[in-house]
Design a binder for these strands. Structure first.
Lengths: 211, 211
DNA sequence: GCTTGTGAACGCCTTCACAGCA
DNA sequence: TGCTGTGAAGGCGTTCACAAGC
């Protein structure tokens, strides 16, 4: 890794980098200033080889024979992941899941601020959810603009999700996390990740029968 | 695929099979009796090659030149995934996320019945959550036995998760879905899957900066 | 002719093993 | 000596392309 050109991290690496960051923060909280690939890998739940390989995508930030400086490495990963930016999240769907997500502590602590929650049901509009009030999906464009939303979370049951993806794309929201059970098509340039809770349980069920 | 021996499906295949099942049910609901790998793959959001490859793990259930019988294939996948069993779920943690999950419609419709919800906070014990009442984590053994729980969902913030995994293992609960941010160690023979919401957002953040 | 089922090719990701360097 | 950084090897999963069969 010594090219000038910025290159895209493999997605598997990306997912692990977030774990290293969490692990580094944990070590820092314990007062440790230095660490090694062995210690860090254990804390992150991976093997040391892949950890070093992953870090090599970012450049050389360790010292041979010694290890890594905890805060320095954390800062570097953080910058690589774009976490020094201000991320402003809108949650679409104010049902149980949407409300739970809007209050999810893990978001705020990692720099993701939930700025709006919206729903299609008029009966919910205006209701308080934490420090927010539910707004109408019909006002999506207005809300996205007002709050400068750059990430949307789809916490709605089903068929409306696809239309919202296109609408979000037109509003220049380029990152979407979907909890909808169906796979969604995304326009060029938009990033979508999906969490499918039923699928997770189905996989567990199979493994339980199997194992 | 023509061996006698039962073999374990690759996990990637497993995840897609659940999608094919959902897609088949959607086609069935539309009144379609037959389908092809092309149609089904589109509905499931994958390419036809991998779909046929995945199905080949289960044996030959299609007809060359014709396609698949929707209900027959659905039934076969369903059986392979162990979904004809009775799955009884306990949710550990009655915070926002736990309560949201306990009411998640996608579970019940796919044969997963939430039979209990527990929390460590005495102030929550006894409170109603849907048709359930929150029970004390201290009573976990009793609850698991009484309700014959075979899947547990960990919807608790952090450090208590690891201990609960071991406790569940001793109670013979062999499948766990964790929402805890840390990777957890699991005893031999236990299956654990993790959903890390913050990681998902961090990946999206990186992709948004990148793209 | 049309669609399945599958070996072979390909590409990505992980693991190994060791050279490089404090 | 000890740990990082990395080329090479290995393994896994996807895509290709076509033979098999209705």
């Amino acid at each position: 890794m010594s090219e000038l050109e910025a290159r895209v991290l493999p997605e598997a690496t990306l997912a692990r980098l977030t774990q290293y960051l969490r692990a580094l923060n944990a070590l820092d909280a314990q007062g440790l200033e230095r660490t090694s690939s062995g210690v860090l890998a254990k804390e992150a739940g991976v093997n040391p080889s892949i950890l070093r390989k992953d870090l090599s995508w970012l450049g050389s930030y360790g010292t041979r024979g010694v290890g890594y400086v905890v805060r320095e490495l954390a800062e570097h990963i953080s910058r690589t992941l774009g976490l020094n930016q201000d991320w402003r999240v809108a949650i679409l769907g104010a049902g149980n899941l949407g409300r739970a997500l809007s209050g999810y502590a893990g978001f705020k602590s990692r720099g993701f601020n939930v700025k709006a929650i919206l729903d299609i049901d008029p009966a919910l509009v205006g209701k308080a959810v934490g420090e927010l009030h539910v707004e109408a999906i019909g006002d999506l464009a207005k809300v996205v603009q007002r709050e400068e939303i750059n990430i949307a979370v789809l916490a709605i049951p089903g068929d409306a999700a696809q239309d919202l993806v296109y609408e979000l794309a037109e509003l220049s929201v380029r990152s979407v996390l979907s909890f909808a059970p169906k796979p969604l098509r995304v326009p060029e340039g938009m990033n979508l990740r999906r969490v499918d809770l039923s699928t997770e349980l189905q996989i567990l069920a199979y493994l339980a029968v199997q194992g």
